Simulated scan of single mutants.
Amino acid sequence: MELPRLQLSDVGRAEPGLPCPSPPGLNKITVYEQADFQGLCREFMSDVPDLHELDFGDCICSLRVVGQPWVAYTAPKYEGETCAFEEGEYPKVEKSKAFSALRLVHHDLAEPQITLYERPEYGGQSKVVTEETNLAYGYFNDRVCSHVVQRGVWLLYKHPARGGWYHIAWPGERLADYKAQLGFHNCLSHLRPLRPGRPAVTTRLLWEQRQVEEERAVLMDEIVGVNTTDLEQTFSTCSSREYSTTTLHSFRFSNATSLRAGLSFTLAVEAANVFTVEKGRSESSTQRERVEVLLPAKIPPHTELTVHVLRKEVTVSVPVELTIRQNERTTTERGEYRCVSGRAISTKYTMKPAAAPELAQAQPHQPPA
């Protein structure tokens, strides 16, 4: 397989010790000459066949990976021993100060599959594996002699729990005899596929397809003032009040979504209203704010004034189109954004004649003793 050549535009420099901001979906590796992301650093976004040509060979002690995994080699031209690094931060790396080449894993890692065989040349019983597996827990431990990789990139370990030396098996690889080609005869105990990097998710709310599911008025407060005099009276309560309103946002994924737990993205509902969705957690949030309501200042003579403070609650559902970009693959999915908004506050005034006050019975005047 021909590997892409390194372009000058693929090489960047970062401030030592500081992570570089990355746009969503970018695949890159930032390498440092000291542990804990210290010292000189370099940033790469495509394969590097020889780090010595860029004055950074045999000096890497820590690194950060964004997006797809990378494979580091101890010799130029992708030779020597290998170490695979998935998305994340590595304050210290195995084989520090030993890497001479870097290779980006640009393959589709979404649905891995490998077939293992108990005899050379794909003979004997076979076992299809699609996820990380500890063979020591089953009947196929230390019995594998050959394999065929259908999809994904796999790490094959000699010992259980990811122990011992491992071999990197690439998509389409047909390894007919472990003993002759790997010195790995009858000693495979653990295997796992490399995890893809986080995809970039962009969203588009299809407002033209929105549906109003429910609309209702909720009574928040009732204020009553009575004026039984012949003159206009000032309202006995304060001229304004503050009320707390809520907006509940929620998101529902389709049952066939390819997005995994931990992935997050944002929905720009309004210019100043951004809802963050994180797969695997409660895909809902509540916003609260306070609204001031002005009340009437005067009550006419012989009038009872009732003020109802109402909150208008509207439940709306909107289809959302999700565009998912991962490496060179782009897919589209559907989700649903749902909003229960109670931000609209209004007042309703009702006036009716005030009941005449009952006259108190006159008490007979008692002369002083």
Score class of each variant (00 low, 15 high):
A14W: 04
Q150V: 01
P4S: 14
G67M: 02
A217H: 14
I60G: 00
R198I: 12
P193W: 03
G335F: 02
S46G: 11
D58I: 03
D177L: 04
V218L: 04
P300T: 04
V71F: 03
R103F: 01
L63C: 05
Q7W: 07
P196N: 11
I324W: 04
L231E: 13
A110K: 15
R216M: 13
K348Q: 10
Q366I: 12
S236D: 09
I299E: 06
Q113M: 15
R42S: 11
V291E: 02
V153R: 14
L295R: 12
L259S: 08
Y78H: 09
G25D: 04
E81W: 01
L305C: 06
N141V: 11
L259P: 08
V226N: 09
R42P: 00
T245L: 12
R204C: 05
F265H: 08
K348V: 06
D221S: 14
A268H: 15
S240E: 11
E292H: 11
E358N: 09
L135Q: 12
N255Q: 13
V316W: 10
Y90D: 06
E43Q: 15
K127N: 09
G80V: 00
G262I: 07
L156I: 10
K95H: 00
M220A: 12
R281N: 13
L8N: 10
L322F: 08
K158R: 12
V224Q: 08
V148F: 06
K95C: 00
N141S: 13
S346R: 15
L155W: 01
E87L: 09
N186F: 09
L135F: 05
Q363M: 09
E81H: 01
L263Q: 13
V316A: 09
H107M: 03
L219A: 02
L102G: 04
A256S: 13
D55A: 04
W207C: 00
Q150N: 12
S254Y: 02
G262Y: 09
D47W: 04
A136M: 07
S96R: 13
H365Y: 10
A72H: 03
A75T: 06
I168R: 10
P21I: 04
E173D: 00
D221T: 11
A180R: 07
G123I: 08
K312E: 13
Q125M: 02
V149D: 05
F37K: 10
T257C: 04
H249R: 03
R204Q: 10
E358F: 08
V149T: 04
L40K: 14
E53S: 04
S62R: 10
F265L: 08
R334F: 07
